[in-house]
Design a protein around this nucleic acid. Structure first.
Lengths: 152, 152
DNA sequence: CTCTATATTTACGTGAACGTAAAAGTTATC
DNA sequence: GATAACTTTTACGTTCACGTAAATATAGAG
C-alpha cells in the first residue's frame, strides 16, 4: 500500500465535487443521481464491459457517449433484456460501418424478447385466473362457516 | 420407453422398487414421476420443512397426506408463492381446530399475491408496449435504409 | 488541522429453487 | 456374483444483478 500518488494534479480549474467537468464530463455521483442508479451499478456495468468511462487519475469521468450507452442499457433492462444481451448488441457497434448488422441483430433479439414477454404474460394470466378462483372459493368457505383445511 | 414389467394386475408378490408399498405409501421415485418433479426437489422440500415423509430404514415413504401437501405446494408455486409463504400457510394447520385462521391467512396472502401479479402484469404490459414500439421503429429504419446507431 | 463529501479497490453476501456430481448402500433379477 | 434399478447423504455450483461492508485516498470548507 504505497506510493500510488496519482500523477496528476490536474489543472485546478473546476472544483465542486458534483460539478460538471467543463468538458462536459461528469463524475460517477452525478451520473448516478441523474439516472437514478447506484454507484455500485455503474461500476458493475463497467466491470461487465458495458461502460468505459475515462479516468482522471483514478476518478471516473463519464462523457456524453457514456450517458447515451447507459440510457440504452436502462432501456434494455426495462424491456427485460439481460445485461449479456445488451452487451452483445452494443458490442456490434462499428464506427466505420453502416451498422445495419447491429440494427438487424437488435431487431432479431427484440422480436425474440417480445415473444418471451408474451409468453410470460400468458403464464401470468393463468396464474391470476387460478389464484382468483382460489380466492373466491376461500371467501365462500369463510362466509359459509366452512373451513376445509388446506391440507390434512 | 414405457415402464418396465409394471403392467397389468397387481402381482401377488410386491417387490419392485417402484411399487406402491401396500400401505399406500410410495417411494420418492414414484412421487417424482407422478408429480413431474425431480428427486432433488422432493428432498429439497423436505429439507425446507414442507414435506415430512416417514422412513422405512433410510428410505422415504410418502403417504396420502404427503401427496396432498405436495399438491398444495405445487399449486402455490404455480400462482407465484414462494416456498416460504407456502410453508407459513401449511404450518398453520391445527388438527384440533377449525383452521379458520389458516384459511384467513391463506386468503390474505392470496389477495396480496394477486395484487403483486396484477402489478407484474402492468409492468409486463409496459415493457411489451415499449419493446413493440422499438421494433416498429427498427423495422422502419431498416426498410428505409436508415441505420441509426443504437449508441455512438 | 479536522470534518465532510466525494471518490477508489477488493471481495464476500444475497435470494430462489433447485442442479449436479460424488461416493456408497440395498434389493432383486440375470 | 455381477448387473440393474433404485435409494441415501454431503456439499459445492448455478443464475442475475447488484448490496454491503472495509480500508483508503483526495480535496475544499470551516
Amino acid at each position: 500500500m504505497d506510493s500510488k500518488v496519482n500523477a496528476g494534479a490536474q489543472p485546478a480549474a473546476e472544483s465542486f465535487p458534483s460539478a460538471g467537468h467543463a468538458s462536459g464530463h461528469q463524475r460517477i455521483g452525478d451520473i448516478a443521481r441523474e439516472f437514478g442508479v447506484t454507484l455500485r451499478t455503474l461500476r458493475f456495468y463497467e466491470d461487465k464491459g458495458l461502460l468505459t468511462p475515462k479516468r482522471e487519475g483514478t476518478t471516473r469521468l463519464y462523457s456524453h457517449r457514456d450517458r447515451a450507452r447507459l440510457k440504452l442499457i436502462l432501456l434494455g433492462r426495462r424491456v427485460g433484456f439481460s445485461l449479456r444481451d445488451v452487451k452483445q448488441m452494443i458490442d456490434l457497434y462499428d464506427p466505420a460501418g453502416s451498422n445495419a448488422r447491429q440494427l438487424r441483430v437488435a431487431l432479431d433479439k427484440s422480436e425474440k424478447q417480445l415473444a418471451r414477454l408474451h409468453k410470460q404474460r400468458a403464464a401470468l394470466d393463468e396464474a391470476i385466473g387460478e389464484l382468483s378462483g382460489l380466492i373466491l372459493r376461500m371467501r365462500g368457505d369463510l362466509a359459509d362457516g366452512r373451513t376445509p383445511r388446506l391440507v390434512g
